[in-house]
Amino acid sequence: MPKIPLTASEIQFANADFLPEVVKMLNEGHTVTLRLRGFSMRPFLENDRDKALLVKPSAVKVGDPVLAEDSPGHYVLHRIDRIEGNHVTLRGDGNLGVEHCRMENIVGSIIGFYRKGRSHMDRTDGWKWRLYSFFWIRLLPLRRYLLGIYRRLWIPYFGPV
């Protein structure tokens, strides 16, 4: 029997149409790879360049990147900033403000990222992500200035990180 090569293709949908289906797949136990949209996880994750590998959430903790429904039909991929009982505060790495949801609104847990078109995944439990997270979380008071420099100077001359 001849071998037929399999090819992957990408299709873009509006988040409001697509993400409920992703949630359904995660709840069925599937893993899902999503191309990231938006700039909330800058400077290390870029719009329409990087991908996230999601699984059904089990035990999440402060610092974990998650996919959450912060209002009906509106999903965000952010890092958990704080957990107080059932109330979760989320903040994108590129955001100064926060979003809120309940623990049951966390619909996906990110286990890794494919950055810059690479086929090798940067795992969120790996040393690289943990080191980056350790420093970036502690730089919160300086983020406004660092992100401004990154947006106005670094990207125009060197491109996204």
Score class of each variant (00 low, 15 high):
2 P>F: 05
2 P>N: 09
3 K>C: 05
7 T>W: 04
7 T>S: 10
14 A>Q: 03
15 N>P: 11
16 A>R: 13
17 D>Q: 14
18 F>M: 14
18 F>Q: 10
18 F>V: 00
23 V>M: 03
25 M>N: 10
26 L>P: 06
27 N>T: 02
31 T>L: 04
32 V>W: 05
33 T>M: 09
33 T>A: 14
36 L>R: 02
38 G>H: 07
39 F>T: 13
41 M>A: 06
45 L>C: 11
45 L>V: 13
45 L>D: 00
48 D>A: 13
48 D>W: 05
48 D>N: 15
48 D>P: 00
54 L>Q: 07
55 V>F: 01
57 P>N: 07
58 S>I: 01
59 A>Q: 13
60 V>N: 05
62 V>R: 14
64 D>F: 05
64 D>Y: 12
65 P>E: 09
65 P>A: 07
66 V>K: 05
67 L>F: 02
68 A>R: 07
68 A>I: 10
69 E>D: 08
69 E>R: 08
69 E>A: 01
70 D>I: 15
72 P>K: 13
74 H>I: 13
74 H>V: 10
76 V>E: 02
79 R>A: 00
81 D>L: 09
83 I>E: 08
90 L>H: 04
90 L>K: 08
91 R>K: 10
92 G>E: 09
95 N>L: 12
96 L>P: 00
96 L>A: 10
97 G>P: 00
98 V>W: 01
99 E>A: 13
100 H>A: 10
100 H>I: 04
101 C>Y: 02
107 V>Q: 09
109 S>T: 03
112 G>H: 09
115 R>W: 03
118 R>D: 15
121 M>E: 10
124 T>E: 10
124 T>H: 05
125 D>Q: 05
126 G>Y: 11
127 W>H: 06
131 L>K: 08
133 S>H: 04
134 F>I: 02
141 P>S: 10
141 P>T: 11
142 L>K: 01
142 L>C: 11
143 R>Y: 04
146 L>E: 06
150 Y>G: 02
151 R>Y: 07
154 W>V: 15
157 Y>I: 12
157 Y>M: 14
161 V>S: 03
161 V>P: 00
161 V>K: 11
